[in-house]
Amino acid sequence: MSLLSIRDLCVAMGPQEILRGVSLDVPDGSIVAVLGSNGVGKTTLMRTISGIYRGRQGSISFAGQPILNLPAHRIVALGLCQAPEGRQIFSNMSVRENLVLGAGDAGPGELDRIYTLFPVLAERLRQNAGSLSGGEQQMLCIARALMRRPRLLLLDEPSLGLAPKLVALIFDLVRRIRAEGVSILIVEQNARAALRIADHAAVMEDGRIVLAGKAAELRDDPRIAEAYLGGHVHG
């Protein structure tokens, strides 16, 4: 069964079409990766799912409910949370305040679970989020999105700008989060790492999905190998 189902989604910024008919499914309990180079519309897709951008055409349904163009806060309340590109943490507020805000109506009850997943955050609760290192900020961003116990977690470029060791740590965390029953839609430029953890993957080019399938198959697809895996070092 599809937890998230996107059909023919078109999104435009003014006269410029960014997404031109994207269809994508996230089966319940799976990790789906969206690959593609810069500027093909991956972040636009993620923002439209979360209700930050408005779609012009098409549909998005989450757990059977249409969510396209619902206000962002209502989408979050349904259990669809995102760790966005650029992290967007509250840098002037404490780590704990960031987490409590992430919890919303759910209250701070999830804090203990977060501490076991992210022990480093537990040591920094009173610190300003802006004073954390890049890797810690990324963890805070993911932890904040988990505070509501979402059914679907959207991760937009979680490895961007991180050292290889931290990238491995983040991807390991993604696996553990899925093991707890959270479905995941992840956008990555680091195709190699993403394909290793994903069940399904889709490749975007110029606002369209040009290739989709099982991650294991895409890993061996010569087109992928050439365009996204061959010789590229993305960190």
Partner: peptide, 18 residues
């Protein structure tokens, strides 16, 4: 907390469901 969050990062505030 929501008022401070919106002041600090309006986009981040929308992502956490404020």
């Amino acid at each position: 907390l929501s008022i401070r969050a919106v002041s600090n990062n309006p986009l981040g505030a929308r992502y956490v469901g404020i």
